[in-house]
Write a protein that binds this DNA or RNA. Structure first.
Length: 494
RNA sequence: GGCGCAUUCGUCUAGCGGUUAGGACACCGCCCUCUCAAGGCGGAAACGGGGGUUCGACUCCCCCAUGCGCUACCA
C-alpha cells in the first residue's frame, strides 16, 4: 500500500508557521517514502470559515514550494477535497453508525446542555454528556424518537462510547498512548445543521481517501481515541498516527499574533526567502544532523524521519530565522536577488535600475543585512543621493583643510581610470600621505559625503559601484550646499 | 476540577547506562579593519526536584513540581 498523507487545514485564517511546519513534515514524509501529499479543506464549521483563507493556504504553500499531488486546486481520484462538498457522504455514514447501534440521536437544546454542564460543575464532576438523563434514543421511547425525527426536530447524532474500556493507540512520535473510555464524551458526529463535526468528517475522509499516516498537531491527541472508536465502529483499519509538538511564543504560550507576525504571508512580505523559512520551520522539532543548519528541500526529504521528531514543544526564535535568512541572502544567485530587489525599491519610490547595477549593489551589501529589502533601506544611498547627513560623524573627522582637500580630490578622481576600488584606494592614499595625513582623514568624510551615514560597505567599493560621475556630482553638491550647513552646525554645537 | 502530553545552556538541539554533556542562534571579549558587517579565536551558559533499578544514571522505572494541550452541535 502506497504512503498517503494529507494536510487538512480549516480555512479559518491565514496560514501560519505552525500550519506550515505541519504541511512540511507531511510533505517530507510523503516524498521520503515516494507517497502522495494531499490537501483537504476541512470547512465543516460554516461560522468560522473565512473567505480567501483557502486561497491563502494554497498560495503560501505554493510559494514555499510544497506541491500537492491531490487537492481542491489540482484534483485527484478521491475528490472532492473540500468537506463542505461531501456532506451527503458524512450523513450516510453517520446514519450507518446509528443503524449499527454505534451512534444515537440526541435532541437536547443548547440550553438543556448548558444546564446539564452547570449541574455537573456544581457537583464537582467533569462536564460530560450524560447519556442517561438527557433527551435521546436511550431515554425516549422509540415512537417518540421516530416522531421527533419525522417532524424534523433539531437532532444530532452522537457516538456511543463504551462505558468501561481502555483505548490505546501507538503514536509514531510518542509511543503508546492510552485513555479510558469514561473520560471520553459521547461526541457529536453530525450536527443539527446536517454538517459533520471534525471527528466524523476527518475519519470518514481519511478512510475514503486511503490516508495511511495522520501527521498533525499534538492538540489532537485527546481526540484520537474517539477516532479510534470511530474506525472500529465502521470496521475500518485506522491509519498510523503521529502527533507533532506545538509551536510556542517566546513566553511559552500558544503561537499567536500578539507576539509578532506568525502568518506565512507576513514573512513573505518582510522579505524572508521561502527556502529560509522552510529550513527554519523544519528545524523546529526535528533535525537531520546536529552539526549543520542549512538544508535544501531535497536534503530534508532524504533524511526525514518521523520517529526522530521531538516530543517537547518548540519556541519560535526570530534570531535564528534572521540568521538563516542571512545565510541564504549570501548564497542565492545575484540574478535572482536583483530581480526580487527591484519591487522593494519601487515601493520606496526609487527608479528602475539596470540588473547589473542591482547585482553589484547587492554583492556589496548582502553580508551586512539579514533580509533583501534591508538593502534598499540600509543602502539607500546606492539608489538615491543622501537626503540627510550624520553631522556628528562628520564633526568627529573634521579638519579645517578638508574643504580644500575635497576640491583637489575631485580633480584626482576625475583622472582616476578605471574607477575601481583598488585604484581609488591607491590614489587616495597617495593623496593623503602627500599631505602628511593618514588614509582615514579622507575615508570618513568621504563616507559621510557620499552616503550620508557613518556605516556601510567599504568606501572604495562603494565609490566603484556609484561610479565616477555620481561620486563627483555628490562631492560638488556637498561642497556647494551642505558644507555651509555643517559650518553653521559646528558653530552652534560647540 | 478531570484527562492527556511534555521537561538537556536564554532559544533550537546532540545524547539513546560509563562523555571534560557536543553543535547552532543570541550574548560577552579579543583579533582583523576606513566605519558597519562578515570572518577567525576565546568565554559565559543546561540535564526541574525526590526516590528507586544498577558497579555506574542526562539516559530505565515511580512520585512530585512546572508548563502546555484537550475537556463545544470549533477545528
Amino acid at each position: 500500500m502506497s504512503t498517503r498523507v494529507r494536510f487538512a487545514p480549516s480555512p479559518t485564517g491565514l496560514l501560519h508557521i505552525g500550519g506550515l511546519r505541519t504541511a512540511l513534515y507531511n510533505f517530507l514524509f510523503a516524498r521520503h517514502h515516494g507517497g502522495s501529499f494531499i490537501l483537504r479543506i476541512e470547512d465543516t464549521d460554516q461560522e468560522r470559515t473565512v473567505p480567501g483563507a483557502v486561497e491563502n493556504i494554497i498560495e503560501m504553500l505554493r510559494w514555499v514550494g510544497l506541491e500537492f499531488d491531490e487537492g481542491p486546486h489540482v484534483g485527484g481520484p478521491y475528490g472532492p477535497y473540500v468537506q463542505s462538498q461531501r456532506l451527503e457522504l458524512y450523513r450516510q455514514q453517520a446514519h450507518l453508525l446509528v443503524e449499527r447501534g454505534s451512534a444515537y440521536y440526541a435532541f437536547d437544546t443548547p440550553e438543556e446542555l448548558e444546564r446539564m454542564r452547570e449541574h455537573q460543575r456544581r457537583a464537582g464532576i467533569a462536564p460530560k454528556y450524560d447519556r442517561f438523563s438527557m433527551r435521546n434514543s436511550f431515554t425516549l421511547p422509540p415512537e417518540e424518537v421516530r416522531r421527533l425525527l419525522s417532524e424534523g426536530a433539531p437532532a444530532v447524532i452522537r457516538l456511543l462510547v463504551p462505558l468501561d474500556r481502555q483505548i490505546c493507540f501507538h503514536d509514531l512520535i510518542r509511543g503508546e498512548i492510552s485513555v479510558h473510555s469514561r473520560d471520553i464524551d459521547d461526541q457529536v458526529l453530525l450536527k443539527s445543521d446536517g454538517f459533520p463535526t471534525y471527528h466524523l468528517a476527518n475519519v470518514v475522509d481519511d478512510h475514503f481517501m486511503r490516508i495511511t499516516h495522520v501527521i498533525r498537531g499534538e492538540e489532537w491527541i485527546p481526540s484520537t481515541p474517539k477516532h479510534i472508536l470511530l474506525y472500529e465502529a465502521f470496521g475500518w483499519e485506522p491509519p498510523q498516527f503521529a502527533h507533532l509538538p506545538l509551536l510556542l511564543n517566546p513566553d511559552r504560550s500558544k503561537l499567536s499574533k500578539r507576539h509578532g507576525d506568525v502568518a506565512v504571508e507576513d514573512f513573505r512580505r518582510q522579505g524572508y526567502f521561502p527556502e529560509a523559512l522552510l529550513n527554519f520551520v523544519a528545524l523546529l522539532g526535528w533535525n537531520p544532523t546536529a552539526d549543520r543548519e542549512l538544508f535544501t528541500l531535497d536534503e530534508l526529504i532524504a533524511s526525514f524521519e518521523l520517529t526522530k521528531v521531538n516530543r517537547a514543544p518548540a519556541i519560535v526564535d526570530r534570531n535564528k530565522l534572521d540568521w538563516l535568512n542571512a545565510q541564504y541572502l549570501r548564497r542565492l544567485p545575484l540574478e535572482r536577488l536583483a530581480r526580487e530587489l527591484q519591487p522593494y525599491l519601487s515601493q520606496l519610490g526609487y527608479p528602475e535600475f539596470p540588473q547589473t547595477y542591482l547585482m553589484r549593489a547587492i554583492a556589496l551589501l548582502r553580508e551586512r543585512v539579514n533580509r533583501l529589502p534591508e538593502i534598499a533601506t540600509f543602502g539607500d544611498y546606492l539608489f538615491i543621493p543622501p537626503r540627510s547627513y550624520d553631522w556628528d560623524y562628520f564633526r568627529k573627522h573634521w579638519h579645517e583643510d578638508l574643504p580644500q582637500w575635497l576640491e583637489e580630490l575631485i580633480r584626482v578622481l576625475e583622472q582616476t581610470e578605471p574607477f575601481h576600488a583598488e585604484l581609488l584606494q591607491q590614489r587616495i592614499r597617495e593623496f593623503t600621505e602627500s599631505r602628511g595625513q593618514p588614509l582615514r582623514a579622507l575615508v570618513h568624510p568621504l563616507r559621510l559625503i557620499l552616503t550620508g551615514k557613518s556605516v556601510g560597505a567599504g568606501i572604495f567599493e562603494t565609490m566603484e559601484v556609484l561610479g565616477k560621475s555620481e561620486c563627483i556630482r555628490r562631492l560638488r553638491e556637498f561642497l556647494a550646499s551642505q558644507l555651509p550647513i555643517f559650518m553653521e552646525y559646528l558653530r552652534t554645537a560647540v
